Structures are given as structure tokens and as C-alpha cells.
Simulated assay, not measured.
Amino acid sequence: MDQKTIDERWEDLLGQLQSLVGKRPADLNAVLFLIGVQELGKGPKRFSKEAKQDLMHIAVCRVLSQSGYYTFDGYDKDGWPKWLLEKPIPPGDLLKQENFLKEHVIQYFQSLLV
């Protein structure tokens, strides 16, 4: 990635997402939800609280798959993607883990633009 700080790159991404979806995502969880909906591929609809958590899990697995932490393992009977954990996620405090995810989310969106 370039020399910008993670916070600067994150703010740039939120601005781009605001242009695309018409509303600025409030936080990392909102961005993960958007990625989960995209990866599920069933279009926007109302999701239960449990389904929203599942969508965010799909997003985490997808973005971390770029670095080999997860591999795609097909779809379940309901058409939801399944992932296998391949290596442990690096430990760290909450801020370190959030920045780790943000970096992967930024890479995810950059890969879509290539």
C-alpha cells in the first residue's frame, strides 16, 4: 500500500463508499456488512440480526482470505459461502485487530477496482 496512514486510507474508502451507496458507513462493522451482502450475492434485502452477524463473518473470512487466513469451501444448502480457517489470526489488542481488518478491507476494495 502507499504511504498514507491506515486512518487516511480508511477515510478515503468511506468517502468512496458514500458515493457508491449514498450513505457513509458508520464504522468497520457497517463496511463488513456491505462486503458480506456483496459476497452473498443475493442483493439487498432485510436480514435478521443473526443473518447480519453471519454476513459480517463472511466478510471477515473473505477479506482475510487475501492473506491466506481463510480459504473458500463452497456453499451450504442455503447458498451461503463457507470458509475454512487456514492459520491463526495474529493476536493483538482491539485497536491492532481493528487496523488489521481495516487494512484487509482496503485491499479488498482495491482488488475490485483493478
Rank of each mutant, 00 (worst) to 15 (best):
M1Q: 04
M1K: 04
D2V: 10
Q3M: 04
Q3Y: 12
Q3P: 07
K4I: 05
K4S: 10
K4E: 15
D7E: 14
D7F: 06
D7G: 06
R9C: 10
R9P: 07
R9F: 15
R9A: 15
E11A: 09
D12S: 08
L13F: 01
L13H: 01
L14K: 12
L14R: 08
L14S: 02
L17H: 11
Q18M: 11
Q18N: 12
S19T: 06
S19A: 14
L20A: 08
L20N: 02
V21C: 06
G22N: 03
G22R: 03
G22K: 03
K23G: 02
R24Y: 01
R24P: 02
P25F: 01
P25Y: 01
A26D: 15
A26Y: 09
A26E: 15
D27R: 10
L28Q: 14
L28C: 12
N29C: 03
N29T: 08
L34Q: 15
L34P: 09
G36S: 02
G36T: 02
V37P: 00
Q38S: 13
Q38A: 06
Q38H: 08
E39N: 00
L40G: 01
L40E: 05
P44V: 04
K45C: 02
K45N: 06
R46G: 03
R46H: 06
R46P: 04
S48G: 05
S48F: 03
K49Y: 07
K49V: 14
K49C: 05
E50R: 03
A51S: 10
A51M: 08
K52D: 11
Q53T: 06
L55Q: 02
L55F: 03
L55T: 03
L55W: 02
M56S: 08
H57V: 07
I58P: 11
I58F: 13
I58R: 04
I58G: 04
A59M: 06
A59H: 01
V60E: 03
V60L: 04
C61K: 10
R62W: 03
L64T: 11
L64Y: 13
L64E: 07
S67Y: 10
S67Q: 14
G68N: 13
Y69W: 12
Y70P: 00
Y70V: 00
F72I: 04
D73K: 04
G74P: 09
G74D: 13
G74R: 11
G74L: 13
Y75R: 03
Y75C: 02
Y75K: 05
D76W: 09
D76A: 05
D76K: 11
K77M: 02
K77C: 00
P81Y: 05
P81L: 08
K82I: 02
K82Q: 06
K82M: 07
W83V: 00
W83D: 00
W83F: 11
W83Y: 12
L85V: 01
L85Q: 01
E86G: 04
I89N: 11
P91K: 12
G92K: 07
G92S: 05
D93G: 15
D93H: 14
L95G: 10
K96Q: 12
K96I: 08
Q97D: 04
Q97W: 01
Q97V: 03
E98H: 06
E98I: 08
F100Y: 11
L101A: 10
L101Q: 10
K102M: 08
E103F: 06
I106Q: 12
I106M: 13
I106P: 04
Q107D: 07
Q107S: 09
Y108R: 06
F109I: 15
Q110S: 09
S111E: 12
L112W: 05
L113A: 09
L113Q: 13
L113T: 11
V114Y: 11
V114T: 09
V114P: 00
